[in-house]
Design a protein around this nucleic acid. Structure first.
Length: 758
RNA sequence: GGAGUUAUAGCUCAGUUGGCUAGAGCGCUUCAUUGACAUUGAAGAGGUCACUGGUUCAAGUCCAGUUAACUCCACCA
């Protein structure tokens, strides 16, 4: 053995040996049957980039659980995959395009899709390499990508089933729309940022001036759609303003009469206690408008240009103009220039405009077949357990509050919604945007395109977007749901793709070959879902809903949520702060085992924690320590010329107190590690072995062995204790333990397939 | 506005159902060292467990309140 442990050599060579020997494929060993099947689905890293520190922690924990169960002899499978991460990947890629002075509209959908695909293939390859490097004992034969054909097939079928069950519907709805990205975001995808904008107090002239003030003052940060407003609102419980309900004022820009309505959503304390209603661009206003059946005048188009009075202007230009006009009329009171308020931003950091657009929705709480109820009850009743327990609160709260889920995304990169709209009839009203053979963009109704002598084939060939206008209840357009276009009639396919989480919500099902594969029968529900707590709402909740909906069972029995790895300065890692830790640097410097074990030691109870650099270094030293313990053991065995009995054959009467003490310690190890792992207390388990091996075996017992007369007994005990400890340690630090194992006497094929000490 | 988490050695953090003479890693001090390992060994310094009150034979641990930090959710025109 070399004097020092060479982690690079071990880490380069061992993985492919394991893989080639087929150790990663599930099999029952030690007489165990399928009843102890153990399965984890790897939360697929985003194919938009490389793996980050959090991914490494995830791999470390899951590989620990997997290797542990595999050694116990359970048929064990860990299924790897990568996620297309629709929106995020498309944004990343569009940024790249922008650097080249191009945009998505320079390409047809197909071209654009294949360009992103190329980009993603590169990332996928890197992620796969990184997973190997981390020692992840995943079964590569079962690898999946979220856009693989069988995934798409299942997702389509689920959508169809849900449609038939009345659990998806198309609705006009106020969505968070980004005019720059050209897509909708769900609430949970947004960020909020504090911004400073002027708050204008606009004066509305009262029609009946017989009681007091001539004007009513209304505070607003967005005066530009005032001309399109039709109503004001006050809180009917507001003593000061209640009497205004039913009164009329004049629109400051158009002079049209506007009625004041009463609704309790108005906060009497804010501003003047009177609000203007612009239902088309404000969520509250929209809901109030629906409730009171007020007209909803569109204010913005999809490009973010104004409609109505300031047709075609940008929001900012329109705002200036509106302020100007109001000032000329003397209808602006005071202006609070330093008004701070929070603004919703999309993933790319653009300002979100609430807009009313047709969208597909998942009905999460339908009276007959609620999706969220079983998913919520399972956790409340303890059928699915969440660790650490306090995270359960977050889950329950979210589930209780969950509203219908918009699943349409205006991305190209994703699974296209399998809905066809019939266009041979009055549906020529459908709005489309397409690019013709010469690269020219055209937008408008299909009827308009026909008037301009474009055929349906030409439109379909260059289609960028289809929008279905609002229809009355009794006049719904004909749609067809399916992969292929129907033979009868003329149809155009929906251009929207599914929200990434709609497909990844079905990930445990598709990876196991739902509904009828052998894997599915054997491994569903999976044993544990291990992931970061920040995607409880985005992902965990959706998997639960789909799991129960499609199979009547939960997708997993336990959920373990690890904390977020923060930077060394205790803050979130972010590019702008420049504090992002690249795990590859640590692998290079300290080795994979040290990094994995260091991270595990940092995450005692699922709380967020600072990247534990000290621990990583400590575990690098530990690798070397145990390596040298092995070296010492071999040396001693060589120097001792008598035969050293196997521990099993040793006459136990020859043991002295020191021997008994260390053997007793070893038994406690076996019990302790198992106990900690069963309770998901990984850091405790790791620290426990660390303390034992270093301070009891090395510092104490080895020193004792040095002075022993009956070295055959002592060395027999030491060999047993050492080898057993290595097995306990293997799931934590797979490379160094295997490297040592290969040097030991009478070693088998691999420590990986050794039996777990019990 | 609502909710959650945290406050323990110089630093980063453990401390599970109350039994603690409060631990680990890193750092620090002194000494040691040729049968493995300087990525070593031995010894040691260092904490009124945020603050105030309460429950208890017993509180770092449970309860109430205060203070501070972080995070999430909802968002106000």
């Amino acid at each position: 053995m070399d004097k020092a442990y060479n982690f690079k050599e071990a880490e380069e060579n061992l993985y492919s040996k394991w893989e080639e020997a087929g150790y990663f494929t599930p099999q029952a060993r030690f007489g165990k049957g399928d009843k102890d099947a153990y399965s984890i689905i790897l939360p697929p890293p985003n194919a938009s980039g490389k793996m980050h520190t959090g991914n490494v922690l995830m791999v470390a924990i899951e590989d620990l659980l997997i290797r542990w169960h595999r050694m116990k002899g359970d048929p064990t499978v860990w299924i790897p995959g990568t996620d297309h991460a629709g929106t995020e990947t498309q944004i990343t890629f569009e940024k790249e395009l922008k650097k080249q002075g191009k945009s998505r509209f320079n390409y047809s959908r197909e071209e654009f899709y294949s360009k992103i695909k190329e980009f993603v293939e590169g990332n996928k390859g890197e992620i796969v390499q990184q997973l190997r490097k981390m020692g992840a004992s995943v079964d590569w034969d079962r690898y999946m990508f979220t856009l693989d054909p069988q995934v798409v097939k299942t997702v389509h079928e689920t959508f169809k089933k849900m449609y038939d069950d009345g659990l998806v519907y198309r609705g006009d709805y106020m969505v968070n729309y980004c005019v720059k990205c050209g897509t909708t975001y769900s609430d949970v995808e947004l960020k909020h940022e504090e911004r400073q904008d002027p708050l204008y107090y606009v004066k509305y002239e009262r029609v009946h001036k017989d009681h007091g003030e001539q004007y009513l003052s209304v505070a607003t940060v967005r005066p530009e759609p005032i001309a399109e407003d039709t109503h004001l609102a006050v809180n009917p419980k507001d003593k000061k303003h209640a009497k205004l309900v039913g009164e009329k004022v004049l629109n400051p820009l158009t002079g049209v009469e506007m009625e004041i309505i009463g609704d309790e959503f108005v906060d009497p304390e804010f501003g003047t206690g009177i609000v203007k209603l612009t239902p088309a661009v404000d969520k509250n206003d929209y809901e109030v408008a629906l409730k009171h059946k007020l007209p909803i005048n569109e204010v913005l188009d999809l490009q973010g240009k104004m409609k109505g009075r300031y047709e075609g202007l940008s929001v900012n230009d329109a705002r200036k103009k509106a302020v100007e006009e109001l000032e000329q009329k003397g209808l602006i009171g005071k202006v609070d220039e330093k008004y701070m308020h929070s603004v919703a931003l999309c993933k790319a950091g653009h300002k979100i405009e609430p807009m009313i657009l047709p969208n597909w929705f998942v009905k999460v709480d339908a009276p007959k077949k609620s999706l969220k109820k079983p998913a919520l009850d399972a956790v409340k009743k303890g059928d699915v357990k969440i660790f650490p327990k306090w995270q359960e609160i977050k889950y329950v709260r979210w589930m209780e509050e969950m509203r219908d889920w918009p699943i349409s995304r205006q991305n190209v990169w994703g699974i296209r919604i399998p809905v066809w709209h019939r266009v041979d009839g009055h549906e020529v009203r459908l709005w489309t945007l397409f690019i013709d053979k010469n690269g020219q963009q055209h937008q408008g109704s299909i009827a308009q395109h026909y008037d301009n002598n474009f055929s349906l084939e030409e439109i379909k060939a260059g289609i960028q977007r289809v929008l279905v206008p609002f229809y009355e209840e009794h006049n719904q357009p004909q749609i067809y749901i399916g992969e292929n276009v129907p033979v009868e009639g003329q149809w155009i396919r929906e251009t929207d793709t599914f929200d990434t989480w709609f497909s990844s919500g079905q990930w445990p099902l598709v990876t196991l070959g739902y509904p009828d594969s052998e894997d599915f029968k054997k491994f569903y529900p999976t044993s544990v879902l291990e992931t970061g707590w920040e995607i409880i709402r985005l992902w965990v909740s959706r998997m639960m809903m789909f799991g129960y909906y499609l199979t009547g069972e939960p997708p997993f029995k336990d959920v373990y949520l690890h904390g977020m790895v923060r930077a060394l300065d205790g803050r979130k890692m972010s590019k702008s702060l420049g504090n992002v830790i690249n795990p590859e640097e640590y692998v290079e410097q300290y080795g994979v085992d040290a990094l994995r074990m260091g991270l595990i030691a940092g995450t005692a109870n699922g709380k967020d924690f600072n990247f534990p650099k000290d621990r990583v270094i400590a575990y690098k030293h530990f690798s070397n320590k145990i390596w040298n313990m092995g070296r010492f053991l071999l040396m001693m065995r060589e120097q001792w010329d008598k035969e050293i009995p196997r521990f099993e054959d040793l006459d136990k009467k020859s043991l002295n107190d020191e021997d008994k003490k260390i053997l007793n310690g070893l038994n406690k190890q076996i019990e302790g590690v198992e106990g900690f792992l069963n309770k998901f207390r990984f850091a405790d388990a790791g620290e426990f072995i660390y303390q034992f091996m270093w301070h009891e075996v090395a510092d104490s017992y080895i020193e004792h062995v040095k002075v022993r007369e009956d070295k055959d007994v002592a060395l027999s005990v030491l060999t047993h204790v050492y080898m057993t400890s290595l097995k306990l340690l293997h799931p934590f630090m797979p490379f160094v333990t295997e490297a040592i194992y290969q040097q030991m006497p009478d070693h088998g094929e691999s420590i990986m397939i050794e039996e777990w000490p019990a």
